[in-house]
Amino acid sequence: MTILLAGGLSMTVTKSKSGRSTKQGSKRGASLTIGLATSGPAPRFTPTSGKISLAPDLMKGIVARKGAAKGVLSGFGRAVLQAERSGKPVRMTVVVEPEAISPRIAVEEMSAPAGNALDTALAAARTRGAARAADILNGEDMLTADAFAEEIGATRETVHKKRRRHEVLGLEGPKRGIRFPKWQVSRSGELLPGLPLLFRSLGDHPWAVYRFLLQEHAELGGGTALEALRRGRVEDVIAVAGSIGAGAFA
């Protein structure tokens, strides 16, 4: 049978032929069972399934200092509870002095590693970006492929072919599928000129083209690229897009 001693120290006890109880060591050495405090009105320690193998000499030292072993396990239990309650990693420091009966134990919260903080910030930024994209695609000026096809007097298949050739701007979101800004069609039903060249300058990214078209540019007299294209200033717009694509951000 297994007996739990002083906060988690366990060893196997057997009966010899003479009837006397003897402590039996295994070839793998003794083991230390870790007890964790459970939260609630009456916290108590319960043994976990995990065990730490101990060398025979170390086992003798721990048996001689049962209070020390119990103190270490108690500190570990406090550390686990603090980590669960705060949701943050904690550091448990054990200082053992030569003549001390019990060790000194300190438990403190650790700051999150820089990598974790960066990952959290990037995840939050992606979430904000997805939410912003969803808001844009929900706008009244965003048309489905069928509605846009009707707007330009073409079929749905023609619209998607034009999108793949970058003759029209189609924006894709996380849930709503592809939407086509209505403002890229003039009152006379003509599409914006120079879109294929604009895509080429901005790396073939539809959202980058969308942002560029609606952004005001000093090189275009403080107006947007969309307004400049409507006035036929295709070369000026492409020149500004080329400078941005080369690394000179507006």
Results as ranks from 00 to 15, higher is better:
H217R: 05
G222I: 11
A149L: 01
R156T: 11
R126A: 03
E99D: 12
G115L: 09
M92D: 01
L202T: 02
L195Y: 00
G115H: 01
A154Y: 03
F76E: 09
A79Q: 04
L171K: 00
D204Q: 02
R179C: 07
S111M: 13
L214I: 09
R104Q: 11
F148L: 11
G222A: 08
P89A: 04
H160S: 15
S201Y: 03
L122Y: 01
E167S: 02
G203F: 01
A147S: 05
K161S: 14
A208Q: 05
A130K: 02
D204N: 04
T93I: 11
G189T: 04
A79I: 09
L198T: 01
E109H: 08
E190P: 13
E157R: 05
A114H: 02
A145M: 03
A114Y: 00
E97L: 13
G177P: 05
G87H: 10
S186Y: 06
T155I: 07
R200G: 12
T144A: 05
N138S: 15
V90F: 13
R163Y: 10
Q184W: 05
I178T: 12
E99G: 14
A154C: 06
G77T: 06
S186N: 07
P98H: 04
L213N: 04
Q215W: 14
R165N: 06
A134E: 09
P206S: 04
H217I: 08
F76V: 15
H205S: 09
F180Q: 07
L195D: 04
H205I: 09
V185M: 00
S86W: 01
Q215H: 14
E84M: 12
S86A: 12
G153T: 08
H205Y: 07
P181F: 05
A131F: 07
Q215A: 13
M110Q: 07
H166W: 01
V185W: 00
D135R: 00
V95N: 10
W183G: 07
T127V: 13
L202G: 08
R128A: 15
N138D: 15
V209P: 01
E151D: 15
V80E: 06
V90C: 10
G221Y: 00
L122M: 11
R165V: 05
E108A: 14
K182D: 12
R211Q: 08
R78A: 12
E190K: 10
L192H: 08
K161L: 15
Q184E: 02
I152S: 07
N138T: 13
R104S: 15
A124K: 08
D204V: 04
E190L: 15
K175Q: 11
V94W: 02
W207Y: 00
G222Q: 09
T144E: 03
I152R: 02
E97F: 13
V94E: 04
T93Y: 03
E84C: 15
T158P: 07
G194H: 00
P181C: 09
A145P: 00
R91S: 09
S188V: 13
E150S: 15
L122W: 03
I101M: 13
R179L: 06
F76C: 11
I152N: 06
V95I: 14
S102L: 14
D141S: 13
T127I: 12
K162C: 11
F76A: 14
D204L: 06
L118D: 12
N116A: 12
D141Q: 10
P98Y: 02
T120F: 13
R211C: 10
